[in-house]
Simulated scan of single mutants.
Amino acid sequence: MTSYSLVADVGGTNTRVALAQGTELRPDSIVKHRNCDHSGLAELLVAYLDGQDNPVCDRAAVAIAGPVKDGAGQLTNLNWQLDKARLARVSGAGRSAILNDLQAQGHALGHIDDCHLTTLKQGQDVNPNAAMLVIGVGTGFNCAPVFQTAKGRFVPPSEAGHLTFPARGHDQWDLSQFLDAQLGHVAVEDVLSGRGLERCFAWASATMGQPRTATTTDIFAAADAGDPAAIKAIGAFVTALGGVVGDLALTLLPFGGIYLVGGMARAIAPWFDRCGFNAALTDKGRFSDFLDGFAIRLVEDDYAALSGCAHFLAGSDNQS
């Protein structure tokens, strides 16, 4: 009987689940679930396995958009929890793991087809053995450094989205004060996420004397139609993102490349040139030229985190 790995990528809105054989996903097994249709993650996984005729799974790995500690994870934007012991019971797997979703994306780097990668910025010296950095911009914000070691790939977790938003310049300071009045503490994720763009639009329209609210979809459509508030909101988002990416690059020195993932990253990338992303990225005084050494790529593979889970499990086997 064929044995599989159960792999899942759990976001704040949707969960993708698949079966893998070794490091290869079985394409006909990939299913995208709306989280609102399920009462919890364990129930969702049970329903998925039932729909796949309950295959034998000897390993299981789940990537969660939230903090993970000691084999247990809690989603940041949804009241779902899972630990590896319960995952083992649900899947029947002898080996199980809970990862942060950006960790899973980090394990996918180097295994993503070139057709799913778009180069946004060429680096001066791309070294495949150097550290890499994956940055997720979607329902939330986070990052994970990726290190190659003698014992294999090491991708430590972080919760970088909850760092204090580093406002720079008049507009960003004004935006941060506008949000501080509502939120008390303004984190990076409060600006650089889907909800963050909506907050940028609320601020931009208020500064123009016509306070409005809009969804991310409507903001992009309005900007395409020339709406000044929507364009200002997107500009604020892009320059804020450039500044944060530059800070993270200086912190982690990812000479192997920076990889942007997530729905908001894909949606906002076409505005980078128009709104000054690279100028904001390199606005670091004496180290402005230094920051041109980092290549930036956009990942357009919706299943990269699933692949990363499969490669993590395979790598764990090789290290055991």
Rank of each mutant, 00 (worst) to 15 (best):
S316Q: 15
N54Q: 13
N318A: 15
G209Q: 09
A267V: 07
G94P: 02
G226W: 01
D53M: 11
I135L: 11
P27R: 11
Q148I: 09
F255Q: 13
H33P: 03
K121N: 12
A310S: 10
T13G: 10
A20C: 11
E198Q: 15
A88V: 11
F294M: 09
V188K: 02
N278F: 08
H116L: 05
A295N: 02
L291W: 01
P211T: 08
L252K: 05
L133D: 03
Q148K: 11
T164D: 13
V46D: 13
K84C: 13
R212N: 11
A160V: 08
H33D: 11
T118N: 09
P228A: 09
A85D: 15
L241A: 07
H116G: 04
V46A: 14
M132T: 10
S307K: 13
A42E: 14
V90H: 03
V46G: 05
A61D: 07
Q319C: 08
R286M: 14
A222Y: 00
N54I: 03
P228Q: 10
L120A: 10
I30A: 09
P128T: 12
D273N: 13
Q319A: 15
G262M: 04
G152I: 08
S158F: 00
P67F: 02
I258M: 09
L45N: 05
G92M: 05
V17H: 02
W203Q: 04
V126K: 10
N142Q: 09
L260Y: 00
G242K: 02
G51S: 10
A131G: 12
L45T: 06
A240T: 09
A20V: 07
R168N: 12
L163H: 09
F178Q: 06
Q103D: 10
M132P: 00
W271T: 10
G246D: 02
L175I: 06
M264W: 01
Y259W: 09
V146Y: 00
R16H: 07
L41Q: 11
A295K: 03
T15C: 15
L6N: 08
A187P: 00
A42T: 12
A181Y: 01
V90D: 04
K32D: 14
F165Y: 12
A104R: 01
V56F: 03
G136T: 15
G285V: 05
A187V: 02
Q103P: 06
G308S: 11
L252H: 13
A314I: 03
G106R: 04
R195Q: 14
W203K: 04
S307R: 15
D292R: 12
G110I: 07
N100S: 09
Y4Q: 12
A223F: 00
N35R: 14
A72I: 04
F255L: 14
A295D: 05
T207H: 06
D28K: 13
A47P: 00
L49C: 12
A47W: 00
D190I: 00
E159P: 02
L82V: 13
L25F: 08
N278G: 09
C57E: 09
A18P: 02
S29L: 03
A267H: 03
D224V: 08
S205G: 11
G71R: 04
T164W: 01
R95V: 14
D9R: 03
V56I: 12
P145E: 05
H33M: 15
V155Y: 00
A20D: 10
W203D: 04
V155S: 05
Q52I: 10
W173I: 14
C57P: 04
F287C: 12
F165V: 07
A310H: 04
